[in-house]
Design a protein around this nucleic acid. Sequence first.
RNA 1: GGGCAGAUGGCGGAAUGGUAGACGCGCUGGUUUUAGGUACCAGUGCAGCAAUGCGUGCAGGUUCAAGUCCUGUUCUGCCCACCA
Length: 830
Amino acid sequence: MDSLLQIESYEPQVIERKWQTQWDTDKQYQTDTADSSRPKYYALSMFPYPSGRLHMGHVRNYTITDVIARFKKMHGFNVLHPMGWDSFGLPAENAAIKSGIPPAKWTFENIDHMRAQLKSLGLSYDWDREVFTCREDYYKWTQWLFLLFYKAGLAYKKEAPVNWCETCATVLANEQVIDGLCWRCDTLVIRKNLSQWFFKITDYAERLLNNLDHLPGWPDRVKTMQRNWIGQSTGTEVDFAVDGHPDTTITIYTTRPDTIFGVTYMVLAPEHPLVDQLTTAEHKEAVEAYRQSARTKSEIERTSTDREKTGVPLGSFVINPFTQEKVPLWIADYVLLEYGTGAVMAVPGHDERDHAFAKAYQLPLRLVIQSPAFSVDIESQAYTEPGILVNSGQFNGLKSQEAKEHITQFAETNGFGRAKTQYRLRDWLVSRQRYWGAPIPMVYCPSCDVVPVPESELPVRLPEDVDFSVTGRSPVSTSESFVNTSCPKCHGPATRETDTMDTFVCSSWYFLRFVDPLNEDRIFDSATVNHWMNVDQYVGGIEHAILHLLYARFFTMVLHDQGLINFLEPFDNLLTQGMVLKDGAKMSKSKGNTVDPDTVFHQYGADTARFFILSDSPPQSDFDWKDAGVEGCYKFLRKTWRLVVDNQSALDVSLAEPNYRDLQGLQRDLYQLTHQTIQGVTTDLSQEFQFNTVISKVREFVNGISRYPVSTNTKDPVFSLAIKTLLILMAPLTPHLTEELWQKLGGSGSVHHQSWPSVNTEALVADSVEVVFQVNGKVREKATVPLNTEKGVLEKMALENDRVQKFMDGKTPLKVIVVPNKLVNIVVPQ
RNA sequence: GGGCAGAUGGCGGAAUGGUAGACGCGCUGGUUUUAGGUACCAGUGCAGCAAUGCGUGCAGGUUCAAGUCCUGUUCUGCCCACCA
């Protein structure tokens, strides 16, 4: 082995395959969830959609979680680190349309390829827990959850204007419309009236919002985004009677009840249900035309803030309950049916939108809020700040804030209003007119109406005899054998729901199934899930800040309320990793600047890819992939390899740790460096996952060891300790390299089963320190002094120093600050 | 328009209020090599021969001492947005 003729070079491709096979065979990363002798740790990456190939974003995500999982394991935790596939979704269906490959075949081939790629990255997954959301053993339970929601009154069907993407030929949830465009294909989203299934996430708006305060392990950025999305506002509802319609009132929602005396008209959303009834004959034609044009507008057109305000009057009037004044009723598309009550009181003097509208249609303005600082003029511009009430009857003179309370109170007392908390969040539209998803387990019976499929009949299997080319309805509806069924209640002929579920439903509970993935009788065993949840560390992209992370929280709360689990939030700690860029630009196929992970594995090995992708930036920041950087990491690993292999004759990892107090000179220095590195790496890994600084410390350590003069004739206990420590500290980062070297050195078992080294704090303290001498805060001299040199001695040294005296320029010090082991600062008159 | 981040060499980035620029990339010079690459050594914030001066987006402030704390401001990125 030690023969000079046989110096082995670093061949990552060979050793990586060898160890991956070995770990697989040994089931090295299998988790025994029944073992409660050790504390549990659940490390989870957001599972991927099997698009076909891994990209660098995946590599970064999974490497980060893998390092955490391995690190925790070496700390004695029973670690659960699973992987699976979010495998329903549109690309599979598009492949079917384009090339006739069945979606299932396409999906599973992609999974096989990507699984092989994941294995070649050396990730410590327990593959026995792999879940596939598109497989019956999983979607059976997704359907079961739908039924649970239905029974709890949290799933309902309603006809509503919905977001429709023409390209994807399906509806979209509110969360999937980004700037008016489809999240997947950037097509302009239009409004369509359809009868669709919804989950009542709005019932949970308040709890989803308030619980964010109890998630200290989540980045503020994500919490803020969710808060904005849920969009709580507190205000008042006021009922306005309709003139000439004694039984009809219109309720408006306002956050500015203090301006209610300034109402000069009222506006309804064009789709408001009272529009037909309240349109007078002479306005019918204009109103119909306006409603028609509003209907065909896309969301982006309609909500554009810089568009001219348009609207038409209905001919009816409402009565302001505070002033008994008659004000005209209009419709305008700047009022949204989905928010509040779909009706707003218009106060053009104190709201910019109402002001613009009033100016366009010559509606009157009225000043009801006066500024305490200047005289308000509302002719040219609305005054939207709070102030003092004027022209407001009994409320004159109150400040806006008090007035809001008094006016709301007055409305409540008189029965025409109430305080109301409003959310921007809307119910989650879960129907999709697509094939490759979990069928919604519902049946339509001519006599019994909507009937849920009994649990015993789950899963409702996806049919295979479908025509993928239909648009506007689910391809599932082309399967006669699927559609025609019998009613579970009356056993008469009935038809099945042909829509499938949004894939975000499938991914809202997968983290629970990972704990008990093979359970055939139940969705999961509650006791086991209660023990293993929460996810201790969740890692994924910021793009899921709202969508997936909000839905998963919602599901968890519902399952808690239904008594299946005993916790309210799924993810204790969340790390949102930054994007992977290439030379400063976002990697994309269209730009042609992608880096294929396989190429990197082949050329440099997985350890290099892992090491590099953790190296330059903190995990939360964007990471710039540079070929020169990969090269540099490869060289470093090769240097590390040689450092060990070339010095094997001096190494014996079974030697006992030397006694620090017996060490001197370079041995003492190396021992110190070893323990300083343990300290630094451990801190950076356990507190903030600062992989970039971990790597710089590892590099400093290797540089330090390289400078140490090794005697090749004898086993050196200090050098052996340094190398042994290096391999253990690097094991989570570069698992193959360290395993191979560990084995070469005759280490016992796997390097990944070693305990994390502990710090000898005595060795952290240096014998001498460098102290700086400052004059007026500027460093003028440095001196190396014994540790803990006394203040007086330091002061004397500084004052007698030539260079210090030069800059003191003969002046008498006003003050001398001495910080032991750090500095002396001499303050002289300037 | 509202909210949240952030701004440090040629580049990615380090810095419990106490030596700004760790570590790496790049670059310069050198050694080894037929040569290139590799490896190794030295250097590398800016200006200057040097002494020295100046330096963490900008303007102030607190402090013996500020990248770090405070006030204001500019710019960049992200999220939300006719939300009443």
